[in-house]
Design a protein around this nucleic acid. Sequence first.
DNA 1: TCAATATATGAACATATATTCATAAAGGAG
DNA 2: CTCCTTTATGAATATATGTTCATATATTGA
Lengths: 117, 117
Amino acid sequence: MKRQNCLCKSISVEEMEDIKTHIPEDETIQKMADFFKVFGDGTRLKILYYLSRHELCVADLALLVQMQQSAISHQLKLLRLDRLVKYRKEGTTTYYSLDDEHINSIFKVALEHLQER
Amino acid sequence: MKRQNCLCKSISVEEMEDIKTHIPEDETIQKMADFFKVFGDGTRLKILYYLSRHELCVADLALLVQMQQSAISHQLKLLRLDRLVKYRKEGTTTYYSLDDEHINSIFKVALEHLQER
DNA sequence: TCAATATATGAACATATATTCATAAAGGAG
DNA sequence: CTCCTTTATGAATATATGTTCATATATTGA
């Protein structure tokens, strides 16, 4: 007794085809996921918060976030690669600051979501 | 020769204290991170996209996302726990749909970010 | 040149996460 | 009741991720 995959009653095959056609490409979806992944970690959120308030060097960030300098450095590298932060060097010191004006709106949406319940 | 932790030249101790005082509580930060983590996965993004277009049953979602029913079910459970989707039962079929109007604005910000480069 | 300092990075490790497989649970048809 | 179907779920597994430790790199000052 041959059977088709469930095409449930609530939607027609044509509609499903249409919806499937309009989804963004896999590559775009993956980029979006990677973008959100960056914000999916407390340490990184703290770093971004502090940088949203003031340009800071690595050691000060480590002090504020209360985590080892190495951990901070690793995370900053990630944030750099994702172009969310930029830096300038002054002697041996590296000063980091935000490099994306969307960060604040991102935070805002998340806080709105949290406040709802 | 005793040494204080680096308090770099670009910021005063008072400013640092002030900034540190105003960061959200750890629990809030963690909730924000968890919220973003949900969007940090391609499979979940696809599910959310499809649901943003139409209420769908699990089997149809599996068909659209091209992934096993079990994988979809597991992810839907997560999305349910995070209250991003809701469902209704009809016989053995479960229909899922979006349960959060922020999802579209979230997507928008992410796409804006991606389009910038 | 040598010592001290700030940052970056590679390796190792522990933990988290996504997927699959097998199967359970529960409704509907006969 | 029995079989078929849809969904949910637990266990196992592979992979990804975050942190630490040790150390390299690079700059500054003596």
